[in-house]
Every structure is written in C-alpha cells, then in structure tokens.
C-alpha cells in the first residue's frame, strides 16, 4: 500500500469507528462532550467546595487537565483493543496493521479537539487574556500525541497475546490519574515530590499546557525537553515492538 492508500484506509477506519461508537445511542456525539464535563463537575465540587482548593483559575486548570488526560486514557485503551476488534479484517486481508492503531488514536484526537473547543468557549466567557505564549500549546499537543501513540503501539502489540494487559492498564490509568497534576497544580506539590511526579511525561505536558494557556508563561524548558526525549523513545520503541509482533496478529486474534 502506498501512502495515499494508507491514508484513505485510515480515513475509512476513522469514519467506521465514529459510526460504530455512537451507533444506537440517542445523544451520539454529544457524549464526547458530556463525559469530561460531568467528570469536571464532580471533581470541581469535591476539590473546590469540599476541600476548598483556592488557586487562581482553578476550574480552568482542572478542566484542561481532565480533557488532556482523558485523551491519553481513551486513546491508549481504545488502541489496545483495536487489534482484537478488527480481528475479522486482520484474518482476511493484509494491510499495514499500524493503520488500525493510528486511526484508533485519531478518533480520540478528534474528541480531544472538540473538547478543547469547549474549553475555548469557557475561555472566551472568562476574562482571560490572549498572548503569544498560547501558541506554544500546539507544541505540547504534538508531544501529547507522540507519547500517546508510543504507548498505544506498546499496548496494542502486546494485548493480543497477553489479555491481562487490559486490567493492568485500567489500574495503571487509575494510579496515573492521581499521580499526574490534574486535580491539583504542580506548584502546590511539596518540593521533594516534584521530581517523582515529573518523571511521568504527561505531568510535564499538562503542566506546560496550563502555563501556556492559563498562566501565560514560558514553559518549563527542562520538562519540555525531557518530555520530548521520552516521547521519541516511547514512540520509536513502541513502534519497533509493534512492527515485530504485527505479522502474528492474524494467528493471535
């Protein structure tokens, strides 16, 4: 398959995923917006009203954290099972298997973009200023995609052979949700824990995104470079593993 044919197949798989995802549901695509909003509502009440976190623009920090994390969580979970879900095709016909993983992540990316649009609308209503630092967010978004795609390749390469991975990953995501600055801000974490927290590339991405979009600050260069390196290593090694495992998918699914 040449590039054009691969892109066409990816587009077709994305279309299929969207149709199947909301097939038979009344609210359909609206669920993509409702899920993070509901999560935001609950966490906001708990942290802002009950635990009384009083940090400037806390709702924005929280909402941005939730939608970036949700993208990572949904994209990796979806990609993991995508190979099994498309087992029917894999057993019948050869095409580059990575297109399946790529389109699965792309579906979650479309959801992320629409959620960012909601964030943008909130932003307009609040009295937050615009400046050039905000453009840096595009870089962090790219970093997020690289990290997510890398993890997605790892998981989807191993899952057909190791079905425990689904449950392991659910637990790790749960841990990750609290270990990443989503409900809290990195700056309020005691100094001795920050290195540990920043070891997670998503912590750097979310922190820098908040700095750029909400605090209008230049990024933390150290964590930016660290995330860049981590992302590239993850993607390269994940893809390598996937490339090695893919010829056996037809026998494993």
């Amino acid at each position: 398959m040449n590039f054009h044919q691969s892109a066409n197949l990816a587009a077709e798989l994305i279309r299929t995923d969207f149709k199947l995802r909301y097939h038979g549901s009344y609210l359909g695509y609206l669920w993509s917006f409702l899920k993070p909003l509901m999560m935001f509502g609950v966490l906001y009440v708990v942290f802002s009203k009950f635990l009384r976190i009083d940090y400037p623009d806390y709702p924005f920090h929280l909402f941005l954290g939730i939608i970036l994390w949700n993208f990572f969580a949904e994209a990796t979970t979806g990609a993991m099972s995508s190979i099994i879900e498309k087992g029917g095709l894999i057993k019948k016909i050869y095409f580059p298997r990575e297109i399946i993983v790529f389109s699965s992540v792309a579906v979650s990316f479309v959801v992320l973009i629409s959620n960012l649009a909601v964030f943008g609308i909130f932003y307009l209503f609040a009295d937050l200023a615009f400046d050039l630092n905000m453009l840096l967010f595009l870089l962090y978004l790219l970093q997020l995609c690289v990290v997510t795609l890398g993890v997605a390749f790892f998981l989807s390469a191993l899952y057909p052979k190791l079905r425990d991975l689904f449950h392991i990953w659910q637990v790790l995501l749960q841990v990750g949700f609290w270990a990443t600055p989503i409900t809290y801000i990195l700056q309020i974490v005691p100094q001795k824990y920050t290195t540990l927290i920043m070891a997670n590339p998503l912590a750097g991405i979310i922190n820098n995104s908040r700095l750029a979009l909400i605090n209008h600050q230049f990024p933390d260069v150290g964590s930016f470079l660290y995330t860049l390196a981590a992302g590239v290593i993850l993607l390269a090694s994940g893809y390598f593993l996937f490339f090695r495992r893919a010829p056996f998918f037809a026998e494993e699914v």
Binding site: M1, H4, Q5, N8, L9, E12, H23, K92
Partner: peptide
Amino acid sequence: LELGVGFQYDLSVKDNVYLYGATLGLSR
C-alpha cells in the same frame, strides 16, 4: 479468504463496501 467476511455487522452494505474496498487499496 474463508468466505471473505471481515464485515462490520452494524454498518450498512454501502459503508462496508467503502471500508472493505479501502483495505484493498481502493479510494472513495
């Protein structure tokens, strides 16, 4: 192969033609 059915059962005949065609390298 093996009766060649890798269809998505919840999608229409039309959608499946485009999807299956794409796996064969055919554009819309």
